[in-house]
Design a protein around this nucleic acid. Sequence first.
DNA 1: CCCTCATTCAAACGTTCGTTTTAATCAAAC
DNA 2: GTTTGATTAAAACGAACGTTTGAATGAGGG
Lengths: 209, 209
Amino acid sequence: MATPDTRTQLLDAAERLFAERGFSGTSVRAITDLAGANLAAVGYHFGSKAELLTAVVRRVIEPITTEQLAGLDRLLARSPEPPVADLVEAFAGPLFDAMRTGDEGGARTSRLIVRIFGDPSEEMRSWTGSAENTLRDRYVAAFTRARPDLTQDELWFRIRGILAVAAVDRVDRHNQTPAPTDAPEPARRWAITFLAAAMSAPPSEPRAN
Amino acid sequence: MATPDTRTQLLDAAERLFAERGFSGTSVRAITDLAGANLAAVGYHFGSKAELLTAVVRRVIEPITTEQLAGLDRLLARSPEPPVADLVEAFAGPLFDAMRTGDEGGARTSRLIVRIFGDPSEEMRSWTGSAENTLRDRYVAAFTRARPDLTQDELWFRIRGILAVAAVDRVDRHNQTPAPTDAPEPARRWAITFLAAAMSAPPSEPRAN
DNA sequence: CCCTCATTCAAACGTTCGTTTTAATCAAAC
DNA sequence: GTTTGATTAAAACGAACGTTTGAATGAGGG
Protein backbone atom coordinates (compact mmCIF):
# COMPACT_ATOMS: atom_id res chain seq x y z
CA MET A 1 0.00 0.00 0.00
CA ALA A 2 1.23 3.43 -0.86
CA THR A 3 1.85 5.68 2.11
CA PRO A 4 -0.94 8.24 2.30
CA ASP A 5 0.15 11.83 2.24
CA THR A 6 0.66 13.74 5.44
CA ARG A 7 -2.48 15.77 4.96
CA THR A 8 -4.71 12.70 4.87
CA GLN A 9 -3.00 11.09 7.83
CA LEU A 10 -3.50 14.28 9.81
CA LEU A 11 -7.19 14.22 8.96
CA ASP A 12 -7.49 10.58 9.99
CA ALA A 13 -5.67 11.07 13.26
CA ALA A 14 -7.61 14.22 14.07
CA GLU A 15 -10.94 12.61 13.28
CA ARG A 16 -10.15 9.78 15.64
CA LEU A 17 -8.87 11.92 18.48
CA PHE A 18 -11.57 14.58 18.18
CA ALA A 19 -14.19 11.85 18.43
CA GLU A 20 -12.57 10.26 21.45
CA ARG A 21 -11.47 13.29 23.43
CA GLY A 22 -13.22 16.27 21.92
CA PHE A 23 -11.69 19.33 20.35
CA SER A 24 -10.12 21.05 23.31
CA GLY A 25 -9.23 17.72 24.82
CA THR A 26 -7.01 16.91 21.87
CA SER A 27 -3.62 18.56 21.49
CA VAL A 28 -1.98 19.27 18.18
CA ARG A 29 0.96 17.24 19.40
CA ALA A 30 -1.22 14.20 20.00
CA ILE A 31 -2.54 14.51 16.45
CA THR A 32 0.84 14.84 14.80
CA ASP A 33 2.24 12.00 16.91
CA LEU A 34 -0.57 9.65 15.92
CA ALA A 35 -0.22 10.74 12.30
CA GLY A 36 3.53 10.26 12.36
CA ALA A 37 3.97 13.84 11.21
CA ASN A 38 5.86 16.83 12.46
CA LEU A 39 4.26 19.25 14.87
CA ALA A 40 4.34 22.07 12.35
CA ALA A 41 2.49 20.03 9.75
CA VAL A 42 -0.91 21.09 11.08
CA GLY A 43 -0.06 24.75 10.69
CA TYR A 44 1.34 24.16 7.24
CA HIS A 45 -1.49 22.10 5.78
CA PHE A 46 -4.49 23.60 7.55
CA GLY A 47 -3.40 26.89 9.06
CA SER A 48 -4.57 26.17 12.59
CA LYS A 49 -6.07 23.53 14.82
CA ALA A 50 -9.55 25.04 14.37
CA GLU A 51 -9.30 24.89 10.59
CA LEU A 52 -8.20 21.28 10.86
CA LEU A 53 -11.38 20.60 12.81
CA THR A 54 -13.45 22.22 10.09
CA ALA A 55 -11.80 20.03 7.48
CA VAL A 56 -12.41 16.91 9.56
CA VAL A 57 -16.06 17.69 10.15
CA ARG A 58 -16.63 18.52 6.52
CA ARG A 59 -15.13 15.26 5.39
CA VAL A 60 -17.47 13.35 7.71
CA ILE A 61 -20.66 15.30 7.11
CA GLU A 62 -20.56 15.94 3.38
CA PRO A 63 -21.10 12.38 2.08
CA ILE A 64 -23.92 11.93 4.57
CA THR A 65 -25.67 15.08 3.42
CA THR A 66 -25.22 14.12 -0.21
CA GLU A 67 -26.76 10.72 0.37
CA GLN A 68 -29.64 12.17 2.36
CA LEU A 69 -30.47 14.55 -0.47
CA ALA A 70 -30.16 11.83 -3.10
CA GLY A 71 -32.49 9.60 -1.09
CA LEU A 72 -35.07 12.34 -0.85
CA ASP A 73 -34.80 12.95 -4.59
CA ARG A 74 -35.40 9.28 -5.26
CA LEU A 75 -38.52 9.31 -3.10
CA LEU A 76 -39.91 12.48 -4.64
CA ALA A 77 -39.31 11.16 -8.14
CA ARG A 78 -41.62 8.27 -7.32
CA SER A 79 -44.33 10.16 -5.46
CA PRO A 80 -44.93 13.78 -4.52
CA GLU A 81 -45.91 12.76 -0.99
CA PRO A 82 -43.73 9.94 0.31
CA PRO A 83 -44.91 8.11 3.44
CA VAL A 84 -43.23 8.94 6.70
CA ALA A 85 -41.50 5.57 6.99
CA ASP A 86 -39.73 6.17 3.69
CA LEU A 87 -38.74 9.67 4.72
CA VAL A 88 -37.34 8.35 7.97
CA GLU A 89 -35.28 5.76 6.15
CA ALA A 90 -33.97 8.25 3.62
CA PHE A 91 -32.99 10.64 6.39
CA ALA A 92 -31.62 8.28 9.04
CA GLY A 93 -30.23 5.56 6.79
CA PRO A 94 -27.16 7.47 5.54
CA LEU A 95 -26.22 8.28 9.12
CA PHE A 96 -25.98 4.59 9.92
CA ASP A 97 -24.18 3.79 6.68
CA ALA A 98 -21.57 6.37 7.51
CA MET A 99 -21.13 4.96 10.99
CA ARG A 100 -20.55 1.45 9.75
CA THR A 101 -17.39 2.39 7.86
CA GLY A 102 -15.34 3.26 10.93
CA ASP A 103 -12.84 1.00 12.61
CA GLU A 104 -14.69 0.13 15.79
CA GLY A 105 -17.91 -0.54 13.92
CA GLY A 106 -18.75 3.11 13.64
CA ALA A 107 -18.73 3.96 17.31
CA ARG A 108 -16.13 6.59 16.63
CA THR A 109 -17.98 8.26 13.80
CA SER A 110 -21.13 8.15 15.86
CA ARG A 111 -19.39 9.86 18.72
CA LEU A 112 -17.98 12.51 16.45
CA ILE A 113 -21.44 13.23 15.07
CA VAL A 114 -22.78 13.56 18.59
CA ARG A 115 -20.09 16.08 19.32
CA ILE A 116 -20.72 17.97 16.11
CA PHE A 117 -24.42 18.37 16.64
CA GLY A 118 -24.32 18.73 20.40
CA ASP A 119 -21.57 21.27 20.82
CA PRO A 120 -22.68 24.89 20.89
CA SER A 121 -19.20 26.35 20.62
CA GLU A 122 -18.32 28.49 17.69
CA GLU A 123 -15.57 26.21 16.49
CA MET A 124 -17.89 23.25 16.18
CA ARG A 125 -20.44 25.25 14.23
CA SER A 126 -18.17 26.88 11.70
CA TRP A 127 -18.56 24.16 9.12
CA THR A 128 -22.28 24.49 8.37
CA GLY A 129 -22.77 25.20 4.72
CA SER A 130 -25.75 25.92 2.51
CA ALA A 131 -26.13 22.23 1.70
CA GLU A 132 -27.12 21.48 5.28
CA ASN A 133 -29.70 24.23 5.29
CA THR A 134 -31.36 23.17 2.06
CA LEU A 135 -31.27 19.58 3.30
CA ARG A 136 -33.04 20.57 6.48
CA ASP A 137 -35.60 22.74 4.69
CA ARG A 138 -36.42 20.09 2.13
CA TYR A 139 -36.94 17.36 4.69
CA VAL A 140 -39.05 19.63 6.85
CA ALA A 141 -41.21 20.40 3.82
CA ALA A 142 -41.57 16.72 2.97
CA PHE A 143 -42.43 15.75 6.54
CA THR A 144 -44.89 18.61 6.75
CA ARG A 145 -46.71 17.28 3.69
CA ALA A 146 -46.72 13.78 5.16
CA ARG A 147 -47.97 14.95 8.56
CA PRO A 148 -50.05 18.11 8.05
CA ASP A 149 -51.88 17.42 11.32
CA LEU A 150 -48.78 18.17 13.39
CA THR A 151 -47.81 21.58 14.69
CA GLN A 152 -44.66 22.91 13.14
CA ASP A 153 -43.05 22.88 16.57
CA GLU A 154 -43.94 19.30 17.32
CA LEU A 155 -42.79 18.24 13.87
CA TRP A 156 -39.50 19.96 14.57
CA PHE A 157 -39.19 18.13 17.82
CA ARG A 158 -39.71 14.79 16.11
CA ILE A 159 -37.16 15.50 13.41
CA ARG A 160 -34.61 16.33 16.03
CA GLY A 161 -35.61 13.08 17.69
CA ILE A 162 -34.60 11.22 14.55
CA LEU A 163 -31.21 12.82 14.63
CA ALA A 164 -30.81 12.10 18.32
CA VAL A 165 -31.56 8.41 17.99
CA ALA A 166 -29.42 8.03 14.91
CA ALA A 167 -26.44 9.79 16.40
CA VAL A 168 -26.49 8.29 19.87
CA ASP A 169 -26.83 4.85 18.33
CA ARG A 170 -23.64 3.18 19.48
CA VAL A 171 -22.35 5.68 21.95
CA ASP A 172 -23.55 3.75 24.96
CA ARG A 173 -21.90 0.53 23.89
CA HIS A 174 -19.46 0.36 26.72
CA ASN A 175 -21.68 -1.67 28.98
CA GLN A 176 -22.97 -4.69 27.13
CA THR A 177 -23.43 -6.56 23.83
CA PRO A 178 -20.18 -8.40 23.25
CA ALA A 179 -20.72 -9.46 19.65
CA PRO A 180 -21.30 -6.86 16.95
CA THR A 181 -19.40 -8.99 14.44
CA ASP A 182 -21.85 -11.61 13.22
CA ALA A 183 -24.77 -9.22 12.82
CA PRO A 184 -23.96 -6.80 10.01
CA GLU A 185 -25.92 -3.78 11.20
CA PRO A 186 -29.12 -4.53 13.06
CA ALA A 187 -29.12 -1.09 14.64
CA ARG A 188 -30.10 0.45 11.34
CA ARG A 189 -33.21 -1.72 11.10
CA TRP A 190 -34.04 -1.17 14.75
CA ALA A 191 -33.73 2.55 14.34
CA ILE A 192 -35.97 2.67 11.27
CA THR A 193 -38.65 0.69 13.07
CA PHE A 194 -38.31 2.80 16.20
CA LEU A 195 -38.35 6.10 14.38
CA ALA A 196 -41.03 5.27 11.84
CA ALA A 197 -43.39 4.40 14.67
CA ALA A 198 -42.43 7.55 16.54
CA MET A 199 -42.98 9.78 13.51
CA SER A 200 -46.33 8.14 12.84
CA ALA A 201 -47.67 8.86 16.31
CA PRO A 202 -50.81 11.02 16.47
CA PRO A 203 -50.30 14.63 17.48
CA SER A 204 -49.97 15.34 21.17
CA GLU A 205 -50.84 19.00 20.71
CA PRO A 206 -54.36 19.82 21.98
CA ARG A 207 -54.97 21.69 18.73
CA ALA A 208 -53.02 22.63 15.66
CA ASN A 209 -54.43 25.84 14.29
CA MET B 1 -30.67 37.05 49.72
CA ALA B 2 -27.85 35.56 51.71
CA THR B 3 -24.68 35.05 49.77
CA PRO B 4 -24.29 31.35 49.06
CA ASP B 5 -21.11 29.77 50.25
CA THR B 6 -18.11 29.49 47.97
CA ARG B 7 -18.52 25.79 47.51
CA THR B 8 -22.03 26.13 46.09
CA GLN B 9 -21.06 28.99 43.83
CA LEU B 10 -18.21 26.93 42.48
CA LEU B 11 -20.61 24.09 41.74
CA ASP B 12 -23.01 26.44 39.98
CA ALA B 13 -20.33 28.07 37.90
CA ALA B 14 -18.73 24.76 37.01
CA GLU B 15 -22.05 23.22 36.04
CA ARG B 16 -22.73 26.08 33.70
CA LEU B 17 -19.31 26.17 32.10
CA PHE B 18 -18.94 22.41 31.79
CA ALA B 19 -22.26 22.31 29.98
CA GLU B 20 -21.31 25.12 27.63
CA ARG B 21 -17.69 24.35 26.90
CA GLY B 22 -17.07 20.82 28.11
CA PHE B 23 -14.64 19.64 30.74
CA SER B 24 -11.30 20.26 29.06
CA GLY B 25 -12.66 23.37 27.40
CA THR B 26 -13.25 24.95 30.80
CA SER B 27 -10.35 26.28 32.85
CA VAL B 28 -10.30 26.39 36.60
CA ARG B 29 -9.66 30.11 36.31
CA ALA B 30 -12.84 30.60 34.30
CA ILE B 31 -14.80 28.75 36.97
CA THR B 32 -13.40 30.72 39.88
CA ASP B 33 -13.85 33.98 38.02
CA LEU B 34 -17.51 33.25 37.31
CA ALA B 35 -18.01 32.12 40.89
CA GLY B 36 -16.27 35.20 42.25
CA ALA B 37 -13.87 33.00 44.16
CA ASN B 38 -10.16 32.66 44.41
CA LEU B 39 -8.26 30.37 42.08
CA ALA B 40 -7.18 28.08 44.88
CA ALA B 41 -10.76 27.59 46.07
CA VAL B 42 -11.26 24.64 43.72
CA GLY B 43 -8.28 22.82 45.12
CA TYR B 44 -9.35 23.59 48.65
CA HIS B 45 -13.01 22.57 48.40
CA PHE B 46 -12.82 19.71 45.93
CA GLY B 47 -9.19 18.66 45.66
CA SER B 48 -8.92 18.93 41.90
CA LYS B 49 -10.76 19.96 38.77
CA ALA B 50 -11.72 16.36 38.05
CA GLU B 51 -13.24 15.91 41.48
CA LEU B 52 -15.19 19.11 41.00
CA LEU B 53 -16.62 17.61 37.83
CA THR B 54 -17.66 14.50 39.74
CA ALA B 55 -19.44 16.62 42.32
CA VAL B 56 -21.21 18.62 39.60
CA VAL B 57 -22.38 15.54 37.75
CA ARG B 58 -23.56 13.88 40.91
CA ARG B 59 -25.59 16.89 41.89
CA VAL B 60 -27.32 16.87 38.51
CA ILE B 61 -27.87 13.14 38.14
CA GLU B 62 -28.87 12.09 41.62
CA PRO B 63 -32.30 13.77 41.89
CA ILE B 64 -33.15 12.47 38.43
CA THR B 65 -32.28 8.91 39.35
CA THR B 66 -34.21 9.17 42.59
CA GLU B 67 -37.32 10.40 40.81
CA GLN B 68 -37.02 7.72 38.13
CA LEU B 69 -36.90 5.01 40.77
CA ALA B 70 -39.79 6.52 42.71
CA GLY B 71 -41.88 6.68 39.56
CA LEU B 72 -41.19 3.04 38.81
CA ASP B 73 -42.13 2.11 42.37
CA ARG B 74 -45.41 3.97 42.03
CA LEU B 75 -46.22 2.09 38.84
CA LEU B 76 -45.31 -1.31 40.25
CA ALA B 77 -47.39 -0.67 43.36
CA ARG B 78 -50.41 -0.30 41.11
CA SER B 79 -49.76 -3.14 38.71
CA PRO B 80 -47.04 -5.79 38.33
CA GLU B 81 -46.87 -5.16 34.58
CA PRO B 82 -47.22 -1.47 33.77
CA PRO B 83 -47.93 -0.54 30.16
CA VAL B 84 -45.06 0.79 28.08
CA ALA B 85 -46.46 4.31 27.90
CA ASP B 86 -46.40 4.59 31.68
CA LEU B 87 -42.89 3.20 31.85
CA VAL B 88 -41.77 5.72 29.26
CA GLU B 89 -43.26 8.56 31.21
CA ALA B 90 -41.75 7.39 34.50
CA PHE B 91 -38.33 7.08 32.88
CA ALA B 92 -38.23 10.13 30.62
CA GLY B 93 -40.35 12.49 32.67
CA PRO B 94 -37.80 13.23 35.40
CA LEU B 95 -35.23 14.07 32.75
CA PHE B 96 -37.46 16.83 31.43
CA ASP B 97 -38.38 18.05 34.89
CA ALA B 98 -34.71 18.43 35.70
CA MET B 99 -34.10 20.32 32.49
CA ARG B 100 -36.83 22.81 33.16
CA THR B 101 -35.22 24.14 36.30
CA GLY B 102 -32.21 25.69 34.57
CA ASP B 103 -31.85 29.31 33.65
CA GLU B 104 -32.20 29.11 29.89
CA GLY B 105 -35.19 26.82 30.14
CA GLY B 106 -33.12 23.75 30.72
CA ALA B 107 -30.97 23.96 27.62
CA ARG B 108 -27.89 24.00 29.78
CA THR B 109 -28.82 20.99 31.88
CA SER B 110 -29.78 19.17 28.73
CA ARG B 111 -26.42 19.88 27.22
CA LEU B 112 -24.63 18.73 30.33
CA ILE B 113 -26.55 15.46 30.29
CA VAL B 114 -25.61 14.94 26.67
CA ARG B 115 -21.99 15.40 27.59
CA ILE B 116 -22.27 13.12 30.58
CA PHE B 117 -23.77 10.23 28.67
CA GLY B 118 -21.89 10.79 25.44
CA ASP B 119 -18.37 11.23 26.67
CA PRO B 120 -16.27 8.07 26.83
CA SER B 121 -13.42 9.62 28.78
CA GLU B 122 -12.56 8.32 32.18
CA GLU B 123 -13.25 11.60 33.92
CA MET B 124 -16.82 11.77 32.68
CA ARG B 125 -17.55 8.20 33.78
CA SER B 126 -16.15 8.33 37.27
CA TRP B 127 -19.41 9.32 38.88
CA THR B 128 -21.53 6.23 38.13
CA GLY B 129 -22.77 4.71 41.32
CA SER B 130 -24.75 1.63 42.21
CA ALA B 131 -28.00 3.58 42.07
CA GLU B 132 -27.64 4.04 38.33
CA ASN B 133 -27.07 0.35 37.80
CA THR B 134 -30.06 -0.78 39.82
CA LEU B 135 -32.11 1.87 38.06
CA ARG B 136 -31.08 0.53 34.69
CA ASP B 137 -31.63 -3.10 35.66
CA ARG B 138 -35.06 -2.47 37.10
CA TYR B 139 -36.30 -0.55 34.07
CA VAL B 140 -34.92 -3.17 31.72
CA ALA B 141 -36.79 -5.82 33.70
CA ALA B 142 -40.00 -3.82 33.60
CA PHE B 143 -39.73 -3.14 29.89
CA THR B 144 -38.90 -6.77 29.23
CA ARG B 145 -42.13 -7.80 30.97
CA ALA B 146 -44.06 -5.23 28.99
CA ARG B 147 -42.54 -6.25 25.66
CA PRO B 148 -41.58 -9.93 25.86
CA ASP B 149 -41.75 -10.17 22.07
CA LEU B 150 -38.64 -8.02 21.64
CA THR B 151 -35.10 -9.29 21.52
CA GLN B 152 -33.03 -8.18 24.48
CA ASP B 153 -30.75 -6.31 22.06
CA GLU B 154 -33.55 -4.47 20.33
CA LEU B 155 -35.09 -3.59 23.67
CA TRP B 156 -31.76 -2.19 24.73
CA PHE B 157 -31.58 -0.14 21.61
CA ARG B 158 -35.00 1.33 22.29
CA ILE B 159 -34.20 2.20 25.88
CA ARG B 160 -31.12 4.01 24.73
CA GLY B 161 -33.34 5.74 22.21
CA ILE B 162 -35.44 7.10 25.05
CA LEU B 163 -32.38 8.55 26.68
CA ALA B 164 -31.18 10.01 23.41
CA VAL B 165 -34.42 11.83 22.68
CA ALA B 166 -34.80 13.06 26.23
CA ALA B 167 -31.27 14.36 26.44
CA VAL B 168 -30.97 15.97 23.04
CA ASP B 169 -34.30 17.68 23.60
CA ARG B 170 -33.29 21.29 23.52
CA VAL B 171 -29.75 21.10 22.33
CA ASP B 172 -30.55 22.09 18.78
CA ARG B 173 -32.43 25.21 19.80
CA HIS B 174 -30.03 27.64 18.24
CA ASN B 175 -31.81 27.82 14.92
CA GLN B 176 -35.50 28.48 15.46
CA THR B 177 -38.43 28.78 17.89
CA PRO B 178 -38.16 32.24 19.36
CA ALA B 179 -40.69 31.86 22.16
CA PRO B 180 -40.23 29.22 24.84
CA THR B 181 -41.76 31.48 27.45
CA ASP B 182 -45.52 31.21 27.02
CA ALA B 183 -45.55 27.44 26.64
CA PRO B 184 -44.56 25.87 29.95
CA GLU B 185 -43.00 22.65 28.71
CA PRO B 186 -44.54 21.17 25.60
CA ALA B 187 -41.38 19.20 24.87
CA ARG B 188 -42.16 16.84 27.69
CA ARG B 189 -45.54 15.96 26.21
CA TRP B 190 -44.10 15.71 22.72
CA ALA B 191 -41.38 13.39 23.94
CA ILE B 192 -43.78 11.09 25.79
CA THR B 193 -45.95 10.79 22.69
CA PHE B 194 -42.96 10.27 20.46
CA LEU B 195 -41.30 7.71 22.69
CA ALA B 196 -44.42 5.81 23.70
CA ALA B 197 -45.18 5.21 20.03
CA ALA B 198 -41.61 4.20 19.37
CA MET B 199 -41.52 1.76 22.28
CA SER B 200 -44.83 0.26 21.19
CA ALA B 201 -43.61 -0.53 17.68
CA PRO B 202 -43.70 -4.21 16.66
CA PRO B 203 -40.37 -6.00 16.68
CA SER B 204 -38.15 -5.51 13.66
CA GLU B 205 -36.18 -8.65 14.40
CA PRO B 206 -36.94 -11.47 11.94
CA ARG B 207 -37.26 -13.80 14.92
CA ALA B 208 -36.84 -13.63 18.65
CA ASN B 209 -35.86 -17.06 19.85
C1' DC C 1 -7.76 38.99 74.97
C1' DC C 2 -5.95 35.36 72.69
C1' DC C 3 -5.96 31.36 70.56
C1' DT C 4 -7.93 28.25 67.03
C1' DC C 5 -9.20 26.73 62.90
C1' DA C 6 -11.55 27.00 58.66
C1' DT C 7 -11.31 29.76 54.76
C1' DT C 8 -9.43 33.09 51.45
C1' DC C 9 -5.76 35.27 49.21
C1' DA C 10 -1.69 36.51 46.15
C1' DA C 11 2.04 34.42 44.13
C1' DA C 12 4.67 31.14 42.09
C1' DC C 13 5.50 26.23 40.53
C1' DG C 14 6.57 23.34 36.41
C1' DT C 15 4.09 21.68 32.38
C1' DT C 16 1.67 21.80 28.26
C1' DC C 17 -0.63 24.43 25.00
C1' DG C 18 -1.06 26.51 19.81
C1' DT C 19 1.66 28.86 16.85
C1' DT C 20 5.76 30.73 14.48
C1' DT C 21 10.26 30.77 12.72
C1' DT C 22 14.28 29.23 10.31
C1' DA C 23 16.83 25.76 8.39
C1' DA C 24 17.09 21.18 6.13
C1' DT C 25 15.30 18.03 2.64
C1' DC C 26 14.04 16.38 -1.82
C1' DA C 27 11.99 15.40 -6.23
C1' DA C 28 11.06 17.61 -10.57
C1' DA C 29 12.19 21.27 -14.20
C1' DC C 30 15.41 23.43 -16.77
C1' DG D 1 24.15 20.18 -12.22
C1' DT D 2 21.75 23.68 -10.65
C1' DT D 3 17.63 25.98 -9.44
C1' DT D 4 13.05 25.98 -7.89
C1' DG D 5 9.13 25.24 -5.06
C1' DA D 6 6.84 22.47 -1.99
C1' DT D 7 7.23 19.91 2.08
C1' DT D 8 9.29 18.38 6.50
C1' DA D 9 12.25 19.03 10.56
C1' DA D 10 13.92 21.06 14.92
C1' DA D 11 13.64 24.66 18.00
C1' DA D 12 11.78 28.29 20.30
C1' DC D 13 7.91 31.70 21.43
C1' DG D 14 4.70 33.62 24.90
C1' DA D 15 0.45 32.35 26.93
C1' DA D 16 -2.48 29.56 29.55
C1' DC D 17 -2.96 25.46 32.05
C1' DG D 18 -3.80 22.70 36.92
C1' DT D 19 -1.84 22.62 41.17
C1' DT D 20 0.73 23.97 45.40
C1' DT D 21 2.46 27.01 48.83
C1' DG D 22 2.55 30.05 52.81
C1' DA D 23 0.87 33.99 54.58
C1' DA D 24 -3.39 36.93 55.62
C1' DT D 25 -8.10 37.00 57.31
C1' DG D 26 -11.80 36.74 60.39
C1' DA D 27 -15.42 34.78 63.17
C1' DG D 28 -16.20 31.75 67.64
C1' DG D 29 -14.74 29.49 72.01
C1' DG D 30 -11.72 29.54 75.94
